[in-house]
Design a binder for these strands. Sequence first.
DNA 1: TTGTCAATTGTCAGAGGCTGTCACTAGCCT
DNA 2: AGGCTAGTGACAGCCTCTGACAATTGACAA
Lengths: 208, 208
Amino acid sequence: METLRERKKQRTRDALLRTAVEMFVARGYDGTTVDDIADAVDVSARTFFRYFAGKEEAALALQELAVAHYLRAVRERPAEEAPVVALRRAVLESWDTLHEVVESVVPVEAYLGMHRVIESTPVLLAAHLRRNAETEDTIARVVAEREGLDVDADPRPRLAVAVFGAVMRVTEQQWSACGDLSLEGMRALTIAYLEQVGPALAGNWRTD
Amino acid sequence: METLRERKKQRTRDALLRTAVEMFVARGYDGTTVDDIADAVDVSARTFFRYFAGKEEAALALQELAVAHYLRAVRERPAEEAPVVALRRAVLESWDTLHEVVESVVPVEAYLGMHRVIESTPVLLAAHLRRNAETEDTIARVVAEREGLDVDADPRPRLAVAVFGAVMRVTEQQWSACGDLSLEGMRALTIAYLEQVGPALAGNWRTD
DNA sequence: TTGTCAATTGTCAGAGGCTGTCACTAGCCT
DNA sequence: AGGCTAGTGACAGCCTCTGACAATTGACAA
């Protein structure tokens, strides 16, 4: 971010994203048009599409940040940990430090607000689930490498990651449904739900 | 399907669906416009939207049939069976009899072809995953009732169904990726993958 | 059979998401 | 200073989808 040009671009993108999130939370996803967002930031609608592939991408940009953050946490887990343990710790850790990543763009409230918008907007929920599936594929590869397995030959990495992801999705959903919109509530739910299923999957794969 | 009117409507819908699926498989989802489909059936594009909520719904209509078929199989499972066992048997059973439901509209090849189209078209895959999530919610309620539990109080029905669904998704994905596009291959994969995870979840919930 | 009612359809207009093009401006670099 | 290039605005246009209105066609009773 050296030149004036780059700084200007960054500012435009941030303004676009911040405004988009604010409007989505306030008036809903469908109730907000790209023109609305562009007008509020005082750029042409065409410019919006130069920064985001579509309205959808702007709506999921914050989630993307969080996912990248989580993925980083997963990769940094020591290889000695069993896969499910590593995933569990990475989740909890990444939530504890989420604000560091998100607050540079929007307040944390906006992140939580967008979460509800996503969960309650069919087309956004769909896109979100698809991205989750992609993320799971990535994580399965990471896990396979940790364990010295071949993702395409051995189904266990994909299965374990998919099962873990399923538990996380139920957790998210219940968290959204219950009024408790705090990161602490999320922590508690995560731990409780994982303990329900986790032990069943904690076998040691390496003694095959 | 008594009156002439109803028969005509049914024929229009079938023609629309059949044509849409053919074109999607042949030219891809994005490469086919609603106008193309309507023109081929010789109705106005407006009429298409009177039969399907959107292009997407036409693309997922066959999946919808299959899901309804599976759901029926689940509900008909005897209550004595443990949840995971019931789900497993319902899946295998509904695949063995899938042709009975699908072939009244399109040949089975078309169904398998659409499956690949869905898996390889981002927006369709997203919609498909969202519908899966909805289906899982329904099944969780069915399971909870079988076991005499409250879906909202006890997380176990949702968790078990979500985990089961996750395994099925991995199965589907691997089945699509491997060249073996037969229902027999699917059966084998399903059994193999479920045996990898199933035992861990087969606990008896009623002795709580 | 015929006239009336209701259901189905086509046409038209238009919003909204998204893309290609082209000229213009503003920052950058020598 | 002047050329170069990235970023932008202003169209024009395609596609999905919706509302409104009129025309057509089947249903049904007199």
